[in-house]
Structure formats: C-alpha cells, structure tokens
Design a protein around this nucleic acid. Structure first.
Lengths: 195, 195
DNA sequence: CCCGTTTGGCTAATGCCACTAGCTTTTAGC
DNA sequence: GCTAAAAGCTAGTGGCATTAGCCAAACGGG
C-alpha cells in the first residue's frame, strides 16, 4: 500500500474545499477520506477527530477572511475602504460558505488557541478601516460591533437564502453601506450611552 | 403500559424547551424521549423524524418571535418602536437560543409550508414599525433588509459569545439602535442605487 | 355493554457514522 | 542495511436515527 502523502495541513485544506461544496453540517470523515483516496481511520493519523478538523478549518477561514479584508482596504480610506472591505467579506462568505460557517461555530479552547489571533486579525482589519472615520474613542468599539453585526447578519442571511423578495440584493448591500458611511461621517454626539 | 398522552404539539413544545437548554445541535431523539418519559421510537408516532421536529420548532419560533415584536411595538412609533422591537427580539434570542437557531436553520420545503407565513409575520412586524419613518417606497425594502441583518447579526454574535472586549454589550446595542434611528430619520436621497 | 378498529406505546433490528485497537508496510535517520 | 517512527490498513465498538412488527389501550357504533 503506497502512501498518500497527507499531512495535517493537506487534510485540512481538502476538508475546507469539501465543506464549501457540501455544507458545514454535511462534512463527514468518510466523505473526506474518499476524496483523499484513503480509508476513514487513516485521517486520524493527521487530525485528532472531527472537532479538531472543524477547528482547523475555522482558523484557516478567519485568517483567509482577515487577509481578504486587509488586501481590499489597503490603500483606501473612508467609504471606499468600507465598501471594498465589506465587499471582500461578502464575496468570501459566498465563495466559502462552509469555511465561514466553521469559523462561526468554532469556540476558543484555551489561551494559546490559534483561533484567538486569527479572530484578532479580522477585528484589526475592521478597526484599521474604521480609523479613517476619526470616531471618538468610546464610539469606536460600538461602531466595530455594529459593523460586524451588520456584515455577519447580511452574509448569513444571504448565504441561507433569507432574502426572498426579488429586489436586487446587491442594491440592498450597496444601500446599506451608504447608510453606514453617512452615519459614521455624521458622528451624532448623543449616541453615547448615558450612565 | 399506560399512555403518555403525547401529541405532535406537546412533543414539539417539549423539544423546544429542551433545545433551548442544550443547544440546537445537541438535540437528540433519545434525550427528548427520556424527558417525556417514553422510549425513543414512540416519538415517531407524533413527528416524522428529527428533521420534521426541527422544522416544527422553527415554525413555532418564528411565530413566537413575530408576536413578541408585534406586542413590543404596538402603540409606539419612531425610535420608541424601533428600540422596543429590537429589544424584544434580542431578549427572545437570548431566552430561546435553540428555537432561534432552529428558525434560522430551517428551509422552506414547499409553497404550503407553514414556515412561509410564519416568516411573513416577522417581516410584517418590522415593516409596520418601519412605516413610522415614512421612507421612500424603494428604500423600505433596503431598510428592512438592513434591520434584519443588523439584528440577526448582533443576536447571533452575542448568543455565540462573539463580543469579547469588556465594553458593555447593552451599551453597544443601544448605540447601534440610536445610529439606525438617526440614519432612518435623515433619509439621505443619494442612497438610492443608480442603474 | 361489547367488539372491531385505530392509536400509541413497546422491543428488536438495521445502518450509518465517529472513533479505537492493533497489525503491517513504508520511509527516514544513522 | 537496520531500526524506529510514521502512515496506511482491517476489524471492531458504541451511539445515533430510523424502521418493522407486536400488543395493549382507548374509542365508537351496534
């Protein structure tokens, strides 16, 4: 029996490709093994199990997503950066729905979990983009959370086929980004929560 | 062997309660049967299977959610209605994370699927609330999609523990609603996508 | 009130899937 | 070349959803 030349990285890579085709919840070790031309138990020589595999895909997804956003916003600022970054994220989710779902389902396992810096990279990309709007320090975290909420929500709903009415979804996305941009530029002072 | 007095409705009800405790992906027929004091196969006399059960929970969740939003926004308008409706949704998701997850995972099976009107009720609740802002007709659908995106995204991230930094999440939610309210009141004309 | 039918329990069995044990062959280091 | 680790394999085990088929409980018309 010749060797297949697998490694944790190559197994994860193949699993990521497969999960985008068949969906996060349909990933099975048997299917992945078949895809790699190997029997199911052989996979356990490279990854600890299905949970470990999903976690590795999640880390990969967060890194890829962060890079996509960083590359898109590089050298731009203001609305241009917002639109480019948001578009990059939306495209990533539509092209890699399984990876993205894995990224969302993943939970941090400990302080040295590589998922932590991976998520940090995504947040850093958005934070850098928001800096162009010169918000107050105490508003920045709220704006970041809003941005994450709206982009995650839109992507998740779109990927799940949640937008039924036949008004163009692209138009809605563009409109939404314009709305956010205008709001961020306006900097309403009375949005600061009172205590 | 005495009868347990189950019905499709009571089984679904029990499953909904269970799923909120243990999480959507941990629901199993065995656990539900134990909870109901019955053996696993007996459940199949009332629901067609796990997929059917999840679908019933989804329909229930959408109806409950729509009612919660409707009740909260009843008799209010503008920012008051927005805040009350959004708060009602956020509360519902935090109190019933399993049901809500089932609602999101569900897919419409056909034209007479009761999930269709159930989702319609949620959308109708939001649409009624948005009417108070007197938006242009062609902006309304975009605003509705934005609202769904942001509320779903926020709820999903919060339920998944996605907000790590120790700035108060309530403050972020309040800030976000203020942001949306101000933007909707402003009605920027240049948000209409050009064709 | 009784009897036939429907309903709702049950046990037993099937099949799929993740995962483990333990064996064998390949490969890499010396 | 020899030794040992690494990477494949076959053969289980156990948990899960689901189905088949049996039997008792409720129920309705005579």
């Amino acid at each position: 029996m010749p060797r297949a030349g697998l490694s944790p990285a190559s197994v994860t890579e193949a699993a990521a490709a497969l999960i985008d085709e068949i969906g996060f919840e349909n990933l099975s070790m048997g299917l992945l093994a078949e895809r790699l031309g190997v029997k199911t138990p052989s996979l356990y020589k490279h990854v600890a199990g299905q949970a470990d595999l999903a976690h590795r895909i999640a880390v990969m997804a967060m890194i890829e997503l962060a890079d996509a956003i960083r590359d898109a916003t590089q050298g731009r600022s203001g609305k241009e950066a917002l639109v480019a970054g948001a578009h990059a994220m939306r495209t990533y989710v539509l092209e890699h729905p399984g990876r993205y779902a894995a990224g969302n389902a993943a939970i941090v396992t400990g302080p040295d979990d590589p998922l932590v810096p991976a998520i940090g990279r995504v947040l850093a990309s958005w934070t850098a983009m928001l800096h162009g709007y010169r918000l107050d320090r105490d508003q920045e975290i709220h704006a970041l959370r809003m941005l994450r909420s709206i982009l995650h929500g839109f992507s998740a709903l779109e990927a799940a086929g949640g937008f039924q009415i036949d008004t163009d979804v692209d138009d809605s996305f563009t409109w939404m980004l314009g709305f956010i941009d205008q709001g961020l530029k306006a900097k309403w002072p009375d949005l600061i929560p009172a205590h």
